[in-house]
Design a protein around this nucleic acid. Structure first.
Length: 685
RNA sequence: GGCGAGGUAGCUCAGCUGGUUAGAGCACAGGAUUCAUAACCCUGAGGCCGGGGGUUCGAGUCCCCCCUUCGCUACCA
């Protein structure tokens, strides 16, 4: 179980928007802490990341902004790369999937699996745009949402009501490219036979009982769900992406989720490409003594625990991940972070608003890391964590030590001549800290590890308070020398063990102590700074307090976004296109009365209704159970479309449709005639 | 409805294979102190461990049912 080297990957961020705090807390901060920690221990580490630049999301974004897909990815690749760097995420390489080396790698990967017969071919019906002469990705098709009537629902999801859809669900679908009505057309694609690989995948997962419960649980959910794993298309009919390198695949590219994880491999190649040993990347991906770890958010679990391992199995040459410590999601002020709803704190903006305060955000996000469940980021909490933990505990301890040393000893580290029993106890406690942190980090318990790091500062503060060197200096100067020596050693060790979490602070502290950065193993020692060493004379404040006004600006900003969103929500969907009277006249709408009502079992929304239409008594299944109980529904007068083609829903024949009025909140309400004299069968026209 | 993960002090979380008065950090209150960024240090208050049954000498920890949050999924026309 002893590994010689570590291949750490952080999820490739999608290049259709900047990085936000959710990405950081879920993936990049834990990955960076872990990478820095291993490096400090002297381990052989490569820490890999890059921009994910393919897929239909990019082409859509390009169309929205009126630029080319390449311009989109160039823009966000730069923003993300720059902000990661300034934030201190210590990737050994930050590559991108539009890079030539990646196209080659992904293409070769596909070809190899293809040649081995690792894919199955399937022909399916997809929407095709005759004018634009291309197949349409789900998000390229717009139509009316069958649920909420939103006219601008996408082929995969209605953004208004959140329902997930298939392109064929849309009413009146049209292409976002040409506006024309798309036709269904047959197309051939290559599928990864996850169904057949299921036993191997299961076996692989069972070898890792040590994985986090949220990860294992979600994998099991996939394996054991209804029909089990299904074959998944690894190619798409799209222009933007990596060409499928086989005959008869013109106009097709690799599925973005096929090509993205291969990006980890390409990026590793790139890392070594211009070195004396360009083939060295293979060690990190093929050697059994290399430990592959994927840092991701929970939305990526299925890809990294099932699909990518399945791809690697089919390929055959690569090692499989040893762990996938996925985090849950981070919310912002109680609401889900959303790029499209602009509900986020963007890293590149934070770096401007809170210049040189990278570590404050790193600390806050680490302390609030959604390790076991979704967590919430609030600006108030950000302020409190900075003021009463970083500033009051950590920063203040360092400041006390440096000020006392300068005041009493002109910055020269005094000699520790004689340790008391109490001193020895403290030194022992101090030397135990790195192992305590290690043991937490080895289990990917970042919050706990961070707490252990802060304990060192707490030990330091308590030591000073107990010893009171500022009093003793008047009576026992010799004793004060020992005390201050110990306090300085604690500060030095703090600089070492905080480095994975607070790298900028660590560097500043080493500089103030006027020593070169030390590695993890030194943190067990309690004499890292020698007697007579001169520390920097001008200690700076490591963490200044954050005032209310500063966070109020951020809170106000979010309030504004919220108000704008609320305003957008009360607006009704725009009027539908004009129709003829004949279109309208086709509909036969009548007044009816609900005679019987009962919930359809095993559904959330369905109610089975028996309705007197004046013409007959018939059964209608309607999705109203969220808004009416059967008792409330019985006896109600309703409007019913009686000549709608019958349809079987949950094995019940539903004849006709009840008309419901829906308000902007999605609440449904019956529609009925005002006068009691308008009885069943009356025509609504 | 199905599957998965949660629901423990005001907040963020620990509590392994069941075992004495349920823990930590922050926030809060009181005290002490002044080297320090009105900080530090000490003390304290604060928990029907989501609810209800059950197994057990004993349950936050095991079993059943229910409620609730998040994710996937079914059904929604």
């Amino acid at each position: 179980m002893a590994f010689k080297r570590h291949t750490l990957t952080a999820a490739l961020p999608y290049a259709n928007g900047p990085v936000h705090i959710g990405h950081l807390a879920g993936c990049y901060i834990p990955a960076d802490i872990y990478a820095r920690y291993l490096r400090s221990k002297g381990e052989d580490v490569v820490f890999i990341c890059g921009s994910d630049e393919h897929g239909s999301g990019i082409t859509i974004k390009a169309k929205e902004e009126g630029i080319t897909p390449q311009q989109v990815v160039d823009k966000y690749h730069k923003i993300m790369g720059d902000s990661f760097k300034e934030f201190g995420i210590s990737f050994d390489v930050y590559s991108r999937t539009s890079a030539k080396i990646h196209h080659e790698t992904a293409s070769d990967f596909f070809k190899k699996v293809y040649d081995k017969g690792g894919f199955t071919e399937q022909t399916t019906d997809q929407y095709y745009d005759e004018e634009a002469k291309q197949f349409l990705a789900d998000r390229y098709i717009v139509g009316t949402c069958p649920k909420c009537g939103n006219e601008n629902a996408y082929g995969d999801q209605c953004e208004k009501c959140g329902t997930s859809l298939n392109p064929t669900d849309l009413i009146n679908p049209h292409s976002r490219l040409s506006g024309s009505k798309p036709q269904l057309k047959q197309t051939k694609n290559w599928f990864l036979p996850l169904d057949k690989l299921s036993p191997q995948i299961r076996e692989f997962l069972e070898k890792h009982p040590e994985w986090k419960t949220n990860v294992t649980g979600q994998c099991k959910s996939w394996l054991d769900s209804g029909d089990g794993l299904q074959p998944r298309a690894m190619t798409r009919d799209l222009e933007w992406g990596i060409k499928v390198p086989v005959e008869g695949a013109e106009g097709k590219v690799l599925y973005v989720w096929f090509d993205a994880p291969i990006g980890y491999i390409s990026a590793t190649k790139e890392l070594f490409a211009n070195t004396a040993t360009p083939e060295k990347w293979e060690l990190y991906w093929k050697d059994k003594e290399s430990r592959l770890i994927h840092f991701i958010g929970k939305d990526n679990i299925v890809f990294h625990c099932i699909i990518f391992p399945a791809m690697l199995m089919e390929h055959g040459e690569f090692i499989l991940p040893d762990n996938v410590p996925a985090n849950e999601f981070l919310n912002l002020e109680g609401d889900k972070i959303s790029t499209s709803k602009k509900w986020a704190v963007w890293l590149h903006e934070y770096l401007i608003d809170f210049k040189d305060r990278q570590d404050v955000l790193r600390y806050t996000l680490s302390a609030n890391m959604p390790e076991t469940k979704d967590n919430d980021f609030t600006w108030k909490d950000f302020q409190t964590k900075n003021n009463s933990e970083l500033a009051d505990i950590y920063g203040n301890f360092v400041n006390r030590v440096l000020v006392l040393t300068n005041k009493n000893y002109n910055g020269i580290v005094p000699e520790a001549s004689e340790y008391t029993k109490g001193d020895l106890l403290i030194l022992e406690e101090v030397s135990k800290i790195p192992d305590a942190i290690s043991s937490s980090l080895d289990k990917f318990r970042f919050r706990e590890a961070l707490g252990e790091m802060m304990n060192l500062a707490r030990i330091g503060n308590k030591y000073l308070a107990d010893q009171e060197p500022w009093k003793l200096i008047k009576t026992d100067e010799k004793r004060v020398r020992t005390i201050m020596n110990i306090a300085i050693q604690i500060a030095a060790n703090l600089a070492i063990v905080c480095e994975p979490f607070l790298p900028h602070t660590s560097a500043r502290l080493f500089k103030m102590l006027n020593i070169s950065p030390l590695k993890w193993a030194h943190a067990k020692n309690t004499g890292n700074i020698s007697t007579g060493h001169k520390i920097n004379e001008n200690p700076e404040i490591l963490f200044s307090k954050i005032e209310d006004v500063e966070i109020q600006v951020q809170i106000d900003r979010l309030e504004t976004i919220k108000k704008e969103r609320a305003a957008a929500n009360v607006s009704f969907s725009p009027a539908k296109p004009e129709i003829s009277y004949d279109d309208f006249a086709k509909m036969d709408i009548r007044v009816g009365t609900i005679l019987e009502a009962e919930r359809v079992p095993k559904t959330d929304k369905l109610m089975k209704l028996k309705i007197d239409t004046g013409l007959d008594q018939r059964t209608v299944v309607s999705g109203i159970a969220e808004w009416y109980t059967p008792e409330q529904a019985i006896g109600k007068k309703v409007s019913i479309l009686v000549n709608l083609a019958p349809r079987k829903i949950k094995n019940i024949e539903s004849k006709g449709m009840i008309l419901m009025a829906e308000n902007p909140q999605g609440e449904l309400s019956f529609v009925w005639p005002e006068k009691d004299t308008t009885g069943n069968g009356s025509i609504i026209k």
